[in-house]
Amino acid sequence: MQAELDATRENVQLGDGRRWQLPRILRGARAYVVLLLFVLVFLTPFYWMVATALKSEVQLFALPPAWVPSPPIFENFMQVFREVPFGRFVLNSATLVFWNVLGQVLSTTLIAYGFARLRFPGRNVLFLILLGTLMVPDQVTLVPQFILFAKLGWVNTYLPLILPAFTGSPFLIFLMRQYMMTIPLDLDEAATIDGAGRLQILRYIIVPLCVPALVLVGVFTFTWVWNDFMGPLIYLTDPAKFTVSLGLGFFHGARETSWHLLMAASLMSMIPPVILFLVAQRRLLGGLAAAGLKG
């Protein structure tokens, strides 16, 4: 390594001993070129989706493929609603999202508070077990969970897709607990002296300070539940109960060649998570990064 370093040092050093560098403005330009290349590769599929969603059935199969739909047919989006009960799917997904967000926010707050603030024998061991469960692959529990819910007669209801949220996701509990650990204990102690009970401390001191973490829990849960495909696929059989993702999958199976409608439906299905991401992105990206580094 040292030899390599020495060799290059000679190459890059100029006569007067200063290192030669690209002028600042050119370095900026190089960064932009790389970034634009990435954007071009990663966003062209989006463009293709939008363009296809606006094409006529004839234009769909033009050769060579048309880059710009002419004329753009906005009617395709309405057509989706006529072909499949898309509005129904959206409502179903929204119902699941609502209960899951509620469940995760409530349960992770309580559980994280227990782990972050209260002392009890076995706390560290239990927390290690909680972290260990992050490593358990879903497959192992999928079949027996299904059998459990099937025996309870809950297949084709939303209960299997909602109830687990009220026991808290280990990842989100971990996230909340780490956040709560950053809140100074003095605040709790001051409140205790003022006669506040544990629930009051949680409600009036911890929760207001945890809003950023709670938003993160909500956004994560929303996105997971909205995007989930396998859960609804396993548990829901009645098309009237399908979620957006599941409905989209079946729409694809039924109308394999209606790519303009499939793209219109796909486009609509990604609006909620994309908007949520755009609104919460600062917090989300920061939180993701923190979770990734600490994990």
């Binding site: 293709w48 790519w259 499939l262 796909s266 299905s269 991401f277």
Partner: peptide
Amino acid sequence: RTLLYLPSVVPGVAATLVWVWVLNGRYGL
């Protein structure tokens, strides 16, 4: 950052459908 992160919030089914169409042998992008 926003633009490049965007594809990862797209629902799995929608992302798959987009690519099935992009990778269509005859009419694909």
